[in-house]
Amino acid sequence: MNIAMDFWTWTAALLTLAILSFLWKDNPTYRAAEHLYIGVANGYSVTLIWYNVVVPNMIDPIAGAYRQVAREGMNWSVLNPFQEANFFVIIPMMVGALYITRFIPKISWMVRIPIGLTLGYYTAISIPASFEASILRQLEASIVTRAHMTMGFRPALWVFLVLIGTLSTLIYFFFSTEHRGILKPISNFGILVVMIGFGASFGLTVMARISLAIGRFVFLFKDWLGLVY
C-alpha cells in the first residue's frame, strides 16, 4: 500500500466518495460536492472563454489598433476587419452585448438579434452538410446493386435484410396515414427491427457505463490508496 500524500489527489478522492455516497442516500456531503461542482465548472468556462475567445479576438485587436493609431495617427486601415489589429471588432461586440438585454425587461426583445444572427447562419450551413452525410450517402449505401449479388448468398441476403429493415423502420415512424392493410405487417416488422437496435444500444451502453465506474475505482485504489499495480 502506497497512499498518496498529495493535496489534490486527496481532494479528488474525498469528492469522489462524497458523490458516491449518494448511492447510499441523499446527504449533505453529496449536496455540497454537487454545488461545488456547478460553481467550479462555470468558473472554469469563464476562464477559458476569456483566454481563448475574448483576449485573442477582442482585446488583442483593439489594443493593437490603439497602439497603431498612437504610433502612426488615425487611418482607415484600423477599421479593416481583415487586418489583425482593428477597431471593427467593436461592432460584433456591441451586437453580442445585446444578450445582456435579456435581463432588462423593457428592451429584452433585443436579445433576439444576436440569436437570429448565429441561428440563421449555422442552420443554413448545416442543411447541406447533414443532408449529404445522413440522407444521401445513407440512401446510396442501402441500394442493392449487382455487385452485392456476386458476393455470395449470405452477404447478399444480409444486404436485402438491411434494405427491408430500413424501409420498414421508416414506415413504422411514418404517421401521416393509419397503419392498415399492407402497411400493418411492414410496420410490425419495423418495430421488431427497432427493438433489436435498441437492445444492441442497451448492451453497448452497459459496457460504457461500467467503463466509467471502473475508471473511478482505478483512481481510488491506484492513485489514492496505491493498492493496485
Binding site: A124, L170, V193
Partner: peptide, 25 residues
C-alpha cells in the same frame, strides 16, 4: 446483430431524423 438489424434500424431512424431536421431548419 450490430451489422444487420441494428444497422437497418439506426439507418431508418437516421434518415427520418435527418429529414425532420432539414424540414425544421
Amino acid at each position: 446483430i450490430l451489422d444487420v438489424p441494428n444497422l437497418a434500424s439506426k439507418r431508418g431512424i437516421m434518415i427520418g431524423v435527418g429529414l425532420g431536421m432539414a424540414a425544421t431548419s
